[in-house]
Design a protein around this nucleic acid. Structure first.
Lengths: 218, 218
DNA sequence: GTCTATAATGAGATAGAC
DNA sequence: GTCTATCTCATTATAGAC
């Protein structure tokens, strides 16, 4: 099956935005990787910003939908009680890790682009709506976690959830550094190893911070 | 006291590299922020890459030295036994958090630049030595953690340490997102709040993953 | 409708003025 | 020794050829 020129450009842009960042990837490079004459990029997308937007739009809905469904599933499975923290943590990580390692280079690139774009400050205002796309699913996570630890102060639930999110974001963005540091003993694309360590680790974090329920605010 | 032109350029570069990234910050913008005529950047530093290198070099040694000293101190204080995991985690976080919130905008910018530069892939080979500057102190952390959990497989100690590092990196880089998500209840520059939550959280993660010592490799 | 050649801007680096 | 005006190249966007 033959990919359309448009899709080839989107794939190439996804790859180069992920590896070189928005500013580091030029339309020329993108067209080169897509093996498409330079100039078609602006023909199809008008501006570089719009190309970026469409790269994101192509996958964001599916990704966010999967994450939300996975979180909701933990609630329905455990009803009427709250889910175990392990199940919630697993539901948060699994869709990301799976896309990172089992859904081909496109999704992998998208995940890295996502991780990169998570830390943008004032510049590039066109990225802001994209950042905020993911806020609802993150809030959903916090809300479910709060039902597991109803006595814990919400600030602590928020911090605990933030650390979880920070770790997965950086795990994706900083891929390769674990391989280097471990001398090859750990591999960032070892799906099973990641889940077997991340889930107990972060569940343990939640327990340690939030189970001492009444320590309150002071 | 009057800052030299050179230092003004370094400060401005530090700020713009941190906020806009390497590619996103132009020498013109940097000179503008420094209120210095454009062209002096290349006069003092030759190339943009060299300017970046000197921005890093100005602080890296001090930062890495402080981190190493803090880690080593936990060992000497606890000798002959290993330190408590809480003390080790605190020693890892404290110098970063302190620089982020109490040492002025220069250090703050440097920390964000550092967090950004942690996830670079093939491009920009001149950044690689900088990334690897921090490898020894990360290895030192792993080695100390391994003395606390001598029965745990080293792979698990590496993963646990990696998550810790990932979380602090992304916490720094993604600053502000906790503020937005929490509706202002949590603030990323709340030093005490951060340490009071991060330390038990990540210590709990280490305990949960590594204390079930004999689960082995399978 | 697809694509190509060109324009216009902004980048980093340099040679030469004060 | 400091700084400025200029050069060359790469970037995005466009106007016009197939």
């Amino acid at each position: 099956m033959q990919l359309t020129t448009r899709d080839r450009l989107l794939d190439a842009a996804e790859e180069l935005f992920a590896t070189h960042g928005y500013d580091g990837a030029s339309l020329r490079d993108i067209a080169g990787v897509a093996k498409v004459p330079f100039g078609l990029a602006t023909y199809y997308f008008g501006t570089k910003e719009e190309l970026f937007r469409q790269v994101v739009a192509r996958r964001a809905d599916e990704h966010i939908g999967e994450m939300t469904a996975a979180l909701d599933a933990t609630v329905t499975h455990a009803a009427p009680g709250p889910p175990a923290i392990e199940e919630l943590v697993r539901a948060f990580f699994a869709p990301m890790v799976e896309k990172l390692s089992q859904r081909g280079p496109g999704w992998r690139n998208y995940m890295q682009l996502l991780a990169r774009a998570a830390n943008i400050k004032q510049e590039q205002a066109f990225l802001k709506p994209f950042q905020q796309l993911y806020d609802p699913v993150r809030v959903r996570f916090v809300d479910i976690a709060a039902t597991i630890y109803p006595l814990a102060p919400r600030e602590h639930v928020l911090w605990a959830s933030h650390f979880l999110n920070a770790a997965i974001i950086q795990f994706i963005a900083g891929e390769g550094s674990i391989d280097r540091l471990s001398g090859g003993h750990c591999r960032a694309n070892d799906l099973d190893g990641i889940m077997r360590t991340m889930v107990p680790y972060f569940s343990g974090g939640f327990r340690a911070l939030l189970e001492s329920a009444t320590q309150g605010e002071n």
